[in-house]
Design a protein around this nucleic acid. Structure first.
Lengths: 133, 133
DNA sequence: CTAAATGCAAAGCATTTGCAAATAT
DNA sequence: ATATTTGCAAATGCTTTGCATTTAG
């Protein structure tokens, strides 16, 4: 995947730090600030948390990233992609994307609330197959 | 509603501060820490934020309260009641409860994920009827 | 009487800000 | 050449903790 073009399309200068951040996000799917920091240490020993925060915030502002607020856990970040929902393992914290029939759920919510809804944040909690054993 | 009994049922001593917290929660439906603090000032000028945090945390531990993490907003708290979802106005921050067909949504999520899910957190964003005008 | 709750001040984290030096375009 | 980004240190802000005092049961 062409991270360089993606960054440029969002008016973000292409720095080595950013490329690595995007790469880690792409490989991990979802990651929190601390784990991202740890994952960056080896390649950029001098990289500071401040830089991570600045980048993550800017990327969120540009809708390049999405911030996920998960009950009882730290916020995690993921590259923006097609709308989807999440299931989270209460034991090992594994996060998985799922594609619900969001449209019908959203319509249900619109009818019930009379709000003009455009976004949904749907998160489930439970045990993943591995932790079930 | 009998707040005293409710507190006692959860092994929480009945203090004037707690009664007022529960009363405010009951009247407001959803409230964040700061607004709760402000709302308590007049009746308890000496009440400290530490006390609020201690109480809110204890009440959450006892499943007497639920913490709601809303995208781009401060966490809010509500008295635990029958499972439900929330719609939030992106403009005035009004929060409304709705009763979706959670069971079928949960089943859909179970099938897709193969997780053994037991909890869901479903939040929608958009404009409320008032802010639409 | 005992255990728990309150309120204050201090401590602890997470996140943001300011600024000088480095880097991307 | 200019504007942006980085990285450090300091500042901010939110939440928790410790402890002495008060209060509930």
């Amino acid at each position: 995947m062409d991270y360089i073009a993606i960054l440029q399309n969002h008016n973000l200068k292409v720095t080595p730090q950013r490329l690595e951040i995007v790469d880690i996000l792409h490989k991990n799917g979802h990651i929190n600030i601390d784990d991202l920091y740890k994952a960056l240490q080896s390649k950029f020993p001098s990289l500071s948390l401040a830089t991570i925060y600045k980048n993550i915030n800017k990327m969120c502002d540009k809708s390049f990233l999405i911030e996920l607020k998960i009950p009882d856990q730290k916020n995690v970040y993921e590259l923006t992609k097609k709308e989807h929902s999440h299931v989270v393992c209460s034991k090992c914290n594994a996060i998985m994307d799922i594609n619900l029939d969001t449209l019908s759920i959203l319509n249900q919510a619109k009818e019930l609330s009379h709000y003009n809804l455009d976004k949904s944040s749907i998160i489930f909690n439970g045990l993943c197959p591995k932790c079930l054993d």
